[in-house]
């Protein structure tokens, strides 16, 4: 129960920050803001119950530069292929089995794949992700494993434990 209260306050803090960013320093806006934040926190707990995994702050700080670098690579890669005179595409489908548990970790994984260079998550079935790639010559596996590792660190999931189970 203590844990539950802590998570409720974390969500209140999160939604209050969003409200603050949206409305700025205008204090009268909190007449609407306080009920809105409370309702949003309650609803979010109902719709997305807290998972057993905790987000690691150190993991977030390692994830952000990784994500920015990879999506920049992805953008440059697409730009090169779109603007070149020759046809540089060699698309194909590959299947990847992830050790990430069901829920937010897997959803974050599937969504971030689409921002990595040359990969796009086309289907998610259990722990298997179908990935469409722009070029079968790209180092897709290394990129995806890197992403998987970063998300596991973000949610404090240990890869060894998940592999054995």
């Amino acid at each position: 129960m203590i844990n539950f209260n802590r998570r409720f306050f974390l969500r209140i803090f999160f939604f209050s920050s969003v409200w603050f960013i949206l409305t700025g320093v205008d204090t009268t806006s909190w007449m609407v803001g306080v009920p809105a934040v409370l309702i949003a926190s309650g609803l979010s707990l109902m719709l997305a119950p807290p998972s057993q995994y905790q987000i690691s702050l150190a993991g977030v700080f390692r994830f952000i530069p990784f994500f920015l670098r990879q999506s920049l690579h992805g953008g440059i890669d697409v730009m090169r292929r779109a603007l070149s005179f020759r046809q540089l595409l060699d698309p194909g489908l590959v299947s990847y089995t992830t050790f990430l548990p069901e829920g937010s970790a897997r959803i974050l994984f599937a969504n971030t794949i689409s921002l990595l260079p040359g990969t796009l998550s086309a289907e998610l079935h259990g722990n298997s992700v179908t990935i469409h790639t722009l070029d079968r010559g790209l180092p897709i596996w290394a990129n995806i494993q890197g992403l998987e590792y970063h998300i596991a660190a973000l949610m404090r999931i240990s890869p060894e434990k998940m592999n054995n189970s």
Partner: peptide, 20 residues
């Protein structure tokens, strides 16, 4: 780009980096 999948690649990646 030739099909729906490759077009999705182009838009999702390039536009998000541009917006960044």
């Amino acid at each position: 780009f030739p099909d729906i999948y490759t077009r999705l690649h182009a838009l999702t990646k390039a536009d998000n980096v541009g917006l960044g």
